[in-house]
C-alpha cells in the first residue's frame, strides 16, 4: 500500500489539480479553450521529447558505468572541504529521479561517507543534477537563466554539508 501511494501520490495530486483547472477553464472559456490548452501541452511535449530521450539514455548508460561506492572513501568525516567537493560533484552527476538518488545515499553511507558529505551529495543532486538541467531547465527556461542559476547554486551543497557536520543531530544509516 505504502509503495502504491509512494509511486502514485504525485500523479494523483497533479491529475486532481489538472482536472480542477480544466473544469474551471471550461466553465469560463468553453471547450475551445480547453482544446487550445491541450494543443499547447502537446507542443511542449514535442519540444522536450528529444532532450527527454537523450537524457534517459545518458542516465541509463552512466548507471552502467559508474560505481558510487568507490567514491565514498573520499567522503568520510575527516575528508574536510575536499570530501564535500567530491560529494558535490557526485551529486550533480547522479542521473535519475528520487527513486534512484535516495537509495544511493544509503550505498554511500555504507561505504564510509559521513552525514555532511551525504547532505552535500543529495542537495547537489536536487539543486544541480545534470539531467534536470539539460533535459528541462535549459530548453524550457533558456540557457542564460539556467547557467546563471546553476552557477549561483553550484557551491551551496558544500556549504550545507559544512553546516550539517556541525549540527548536533546524530544520524545512522537505517539497517
Amino acid at each position: 500500500m505504502i509503495t502504491l501511494i509512494r509511486r502514485h501520490a504525485s500523479l494523483v495530486v497533479i491529475a486532481a489539480i489538472g482536472a480542477t483547472a480544466a473544469a474551471v477553464l471550461w466553465r469560463r472559456d468553453g471547450t475551445a479553450a480547453v482544446g487550445a490548452a491541450l494543443v499547447h501541452a502537446w507542443d511542449l511535449f514535442l519540444f522536450i521529447a528529444p532532450s527527454l530521450l537523450a537524457g534517459l539514455l545518458l542516465a541509463a548508460a552512466l548507471r552502467q558505468l559508474m560505481s558510487p561506492g568507490g567514491l565514498a572513501r573520499w567522503m568520510g568525516a575527516e575528508s574536510g572541504w575536499f570530501g564535500l567537493a567530491v560529494a558535490m560533484l557526485a551529486g550533480a552527476l547522479t542521473p535519475g529521479g528520487p527513486m534512484a538518488a535516495f537509495p544511493l545515499v544509503l550505498v554511500l553511507a555504507g561505504a564510509g561517507a559521513d552525514r555532511g558529505a551525504l547532505v552535500a551529495y543529495i542537495l547537489s543532486w536536487a539543486l544541480n543534477g545534470f539531467q534536470k538541467l539539460l533535459v528541462y531547465e535549459v530548453p524550457l527556461l533558456g540557457p542564460d537563466f539556467a547557467i546563471m542559476r546553476t552557477l549561483i547554486t553550484l557551491p551551496m551543497p558544500m556549504l550545507a554539508g559544512w553546516i550539517a557536520r556541525r549540527l548536533p543531530i546524530a544520524w545512522e544509516a537505517p539497517k
Binding site: 483547472a21 474551471v24 477553464l25 472559456d29 480547453v34
Partner: peptide
Amino acid sequence: VALPMAAFLAEL
C-alpha cells in the same frame, strides 16, 4: 497529466 495541468493553469 503534468503538461496539460501546466497548460490549463497557464490559461487561467
